[in-house]
Amino acid sequence: MTVDVSYSTDEMMSVAAARRLHGGSRCFVGIGLPSTAANLARATHAPDLVLVYESGTLGAKPGRLPLSIGDGVLADTADSVVTVPEIFNYWLQPGRIDVGFLGAAQIDRFANINTTVVGRYHKPTVRLPGAGGAPEIAASCGEVVVVVRQSPRTFVERVDFVTSIGYGAGPGDRERLGLRGAGPTAVITELGVLQPDLDSRELVLTHLHPGVTVKQAQAATGWPLAVAADLQRSDPPTEHELVVLRRLQASQAEEAE
C-alpha cells in the first residue's frame, strides 16, 4: 500500500503535539485536538502514556478516537473508572498528573486561556461553553500543553475572560497565587510552536513547521510575536505518524455515523 505523504497543516499540528508527550507520563486530556494528539502519541512513540479523562477514566486505551470525554470506549478500556469528584479531588488536585493537554477559544501573550465568553461577561458577543475541568487542570498539572489553531481572533493581546490561568500578567503571578503546576510550557498550532520566555513569561515563537514563514506566524498572532534566537524547524510527519493518525480519525468518523 502506498501512503500519501503530503499532509495538511492540521495533521502537522497533531503530530507536533503528540511528540510533546513521553512514555510513562500521566496526561489529563481535553476532547478535540488534544485528544487526537494524545491518542496519536500513545499509538506511536509513547505506548505506555497514561491517558486520564475528566469523566473519571484512568489509563484509558481507546482503539479509536473518543467522540466525547464520556465515550463508552474510555470506560471499557480504562485501568480504573472513578467518579467525577474523585478524579478532581484525588487524582488532579494533589499533583498526580504530569501534563494537562488543553484547547482554547482565545489565548493571550501570557498563555491565559478563555473558553467562557467573547465580549463582556454579562452581555457577551459569543457565549462559549465555559470552564469544564480546565481551570484546575491548568493550575494543578505538572505542566500544560495547549493545542489550538492560530489566528489573530484566537491569539489575542489579552483574553476577554481568564477561564484558565497561564502566567497571569507576567512573571511571578503563578507563584503569588500559589499554583503548584509550572503552567503552559508549549502552545502547538498548525504553524509552529510557541513557548514562554523564561524571564518575561511571554509566548515567543520557538518552532516553525515545514513551509511556514515567521511572517505568517506573526500575521496570525494578535500581539507583536517575538521570535526565539534559536528558532527551530519542526520535522515533517513521518509516514508512520500519518498512517496512524489517519487510521484513528477514520475510526472516529465511522463511529460518528
Partner: peptide, 28 residues
C-alpha cells in the same frame, strides 16, 4: 468549574454547608 461543582455536590451529600478545594485561583 467541574471541580467546584463536584465539590458542591459532595458537600450537599455530606450534610456540610460548604466544600473546600484548591481551585479557581487566578480565574475571572
Amino acid at each position: 468549574s467541574h471541580a467546584g461543582m463536584a465539590n458542591r455536590y459532595v458537600a450537599g451529600a455530606s450534610g456540610l454547608p460548604f466544600a473546600v478545594l484548591r481551585g479557581y485561583r487566578g480565574t475571572d
